[in-house]
Amino acid sequence: MRDETLEPLPKNWEMAYTDTGMIYFIDHNTKTTTWLDPRLCKK
Rank of each mutant, 00 (worst) to 15 (best):
M1W: 07
M1R: 12
M1I: 08
M1E: 14
M1N: 07
M1T: 12
M1A: 10
R2E: 12
R2K: 12
R2Y: 07
R2W: 07
R2T: 14
D3V: 09
D3F: 08
D3W: 05
D3G: 12
E4P: 10
E4W: 03
E4I: 11
E4Q: 13
E4A: 10
T5P: 13
T5V: 12
T5S: 13
T5H: 12
T5W: 06
T5D: 13
T5N: 15
T5R: 12
L6I: 15
L6Q: 15
L6V: 13
E7G: 14
E7T: 11
E7C: 05
E7Q: 13
E7L: 09
P8G: 09
P8Y: 04
P8M: 06
P8V: 08
P8S: 05
L9R: 02
L9S: 02
L9F: 05
L9V: 05
P10F: 01
P10I: 00
P10H: 02
P10A: 04
K11R: 12
K11E: 15
K11P: 14
K11L: 11
K11A: 13
N12I: 00
N12R: 07
N12F: 07
N12G: 15
N12M: 07
N12A: 08
W13C: 02
W13P: 01
W13T: 03
E14N: 04
E14W: 01
E14T: 08
E14C: 05
E14R: 06
E14M: 05
E14F: 00
M15F: 08
M15C: 10
M15R: 14
M15I: 15
M15P: 10
A16G: 09
A16N: 05
A16R: 11
A16H: 03
A16L: 06
A16V: 07
Y17K: 13
Y17D: 05
Y17C: 12
Y17R: 15
Y17H: 09
Y17V: 14
T18M: 05
T18Q: 02
T18E: 04
D19A: 12
D19V: 09
D19C: 09
D19I: 03
D19R: 10
D19P: 11
D19T: 11
T20L: 08
T20Y: 06
T20C: 11
T20P: 03
T20Q: 11
T20I: 06
T20N: 09
T20G: 13
T20D: 12
G21L: 02
G21M: 03
M22L: 13
M22A: 15
M22Q: 15
M22H: 09
I23V: 15
I23Y: 02
I23M: 14
I23N: 09
I23F: 08
I23T: 14
I23K: 15
I23S: 11
Y24P: 02
Y24H: 02
Y24V: 03
Y24G: 01
Y24T: 02
Y24W: 02
Y24L: 02
Y24K: 02
F25N: 00
F25P: 01
F25W: 11
F25A: 01
F25R: 01
I26D: 02
I26P: 00
I26G: 02
I26T: 04
I26H: 03
I26M: 08
I26K: 07
D27P: 00
D27V: 00
D27L: 00
D27E: 06
H28V: 06
H28K: 09
H28M: 04
H28W: 06
N29C: 09
N29D: 09
N29A: 11
N29S: 10
T30N: 09
T30W: 02
T30C: 06
T30G: 05
T30E: 06
T30K: 08
K31W: 06
K31E: 13
K31C: 10
K31M: 11
K31D: 07
K31Y: 04
K31L: 08
T32K: 06
T32R: 07
T32L: 08
T32Y: 04
T32S: 11
T32M: 11
T32G: 05
T32H: 04
T33V: 06
T33M: 05
T33I: 03
T33G: 03
T33N: 04
T33R: 05
T33C: 09
T33H: 03
T33D: 02
T33P: 01
T34A: 02
T34K: 01
T34L: 00
T34H: 04
T34W: 01
T34P: 00
T34G: 02
T34Y: 00
T34V: 00
T34D: 01
T34R: 01
T34M: 02
T34C: 02
T34N: 02
W35H: 04
W35D: 05
W35V: 06
L36N: 09
L36H: 13
L36C: 10
L36F: 11
L36Q: 13
L36T: 11
L36G: 09
L36A: 12
L36V: 13
D37C: 04
D37G: 03
D37E: 03
D37N: 07
D37P: 08
D37V: 00
D37M: 00
P38E: 00
P38R: 00
R39Q: 04
R39L: 05
R39M: 05
R39D: 05
R39W: 07
R39K: 05
L40S: 12
L40D: 13
L40I: 10
L40K: 14
L40C: 13
L40V: 14
C41Y: 14
C41K: 14
C41A: 15
C41N: 14
C41W: 14
C41R: 13
C41P: 15
K42E: 15
K42R: 13
K42P: 10
K42S: 12
K42D: 14
K42V: 10
K42C: 09
K42T: 13
K43S: 14
K43W: 12
K43T: 13
